[in-house]
Design a protein around this nucleic acid. Sequence first.
DNA 1: AAAACGTGGTT
DNA 2: TAACCAAGTTT
Length: 352
Amino acid sequence: MSKPTKRDQAIAASIAGWFIENDRDFPWRTTPRNPYYALVSEAMLLQTQAARIAERFPVFIDRFPTVDSLAHADEQDVLAQWSGLGYYRRAKNLHRAAQRVVDEHDGVVPSDVESLLQLPGIGRYTAGSIASIAFDKPEPIVDGNVVRVLLRIEGADLPPTETATKKMLWERAETLVKSADSPAAFNEGMMELGATICTPRSPSCQECPVRTRCKAKKQGRQGEIPMPKPKPKQRIVHAASVVIRDKQGRMLIEKRDDSGMWAGLWQAPTVESDDKAPSKTMIKVIAGGKQIKRLNTFEHQTSHRTFHFTVYAAAPPSRRKAHQRWATDAQIRSLALARPQMRILLGDDGSG
DNA sequence: AAAACGTGGTT
DNA sequence: TAACCAAGTTT
C-alpha cells in the first residue's frame, strides 16, 4: 500500500462526509449496523441493484430474523425466499454460511476478513464489506461502483477486468480507506456515489463531492471511463413446459438437477434442447403420454442464454413419474421457483 | 483465465 | 431499442 497523499485524504474525507448527508434509507442500514443484516444484504446485493433488494430484504428478515433461525431453516425454504432474485447459489451459500457461523463462531458473525473469507459465498469484496460496514474496520472493498469511481477520479483509461487493473484498484481502495476517519462511511460512500451520482452513463458531476479532484472530469472523459466490459457469449435454448392439473386442481411439478441453471428449483415438467424446439414426441413423454395442447410462448433472458419457452397443457397421466409430485397452488407458492416457472405455474409475470 | 450463474433497471 | 450493467463468487 502506498502512503496517502493530501489529495487522498481530501478525497476520503469528502466522500465519507458526503455519504453521511446523502445516504439512502435502506432497511439493512440500521444504527448501529447489524452484522447479520450485513451478511444477508450483501448476499442479496451481489450483482443486483439495491433498490430491488429494498423490498425483499424485510420479508427475508421477517422469516429468518437471526443467524440462528437461518441456520436451522430448511434449504428449500431459504431458496423459496429467493424466488425470482436469480443467482440462486447465493441463497445456498448464505444458508451454509449461517450454519458455519453458528457451528464455528458461537452464532456471532465474525468481524475479521480472514474468518469471513472462510465462509461460503464470501469473497474479497463481501469480506471487506462486512468488516468495514458492520464493524468499521479499515478494510478495502472494490465492487462495480468503486471501479468506476476510482478509474474516473484517476482518469485511468484501463480495461477494468484485467488483473493488473484490479490490483491497482484494490491498492488505491486500501490507501483511501486507511486514510478515512470512518472506514464504514467511506466504503459505503464510494458505492453510494457510484450508484447515485457517478453513474455509468450521464453522471451528475455537478453534484459530486470530489468534482474538483476528478481527473476524468477535468479531461471531459467521464463518459469514456471505464471502458466497457467484454460481454459473454449467448446461447439459444428451446424449452417446453407442460401444465398438468389433476381433478383436484393440483399441478404436476418436478425438481431440477442440483447443478447448472436453476439448480434445485421446482418446475412444471420441462424439456430443453439446444438447436431446435423439442419434438412433440419428447414433449408427450414428459407430459405422461397424454395429448398436448399449446397454450402460449414467451422468451426469457438470462446472463448466458436466451430461452424460448413454449407452454403446453395436458390431461393428467394415470401415474406420475417417481421424481414428480402433485402440488396445490398454495404449496407451489411456497416452493423455490425461477422466474419463468413463476409465470408458468402461478401466472405471475413478475410485474406485480 | 475464462466461463457459468438470473433478473431487472436505465438510457 | 439494445446495450450495458448491478454492493461478485466459484469452478
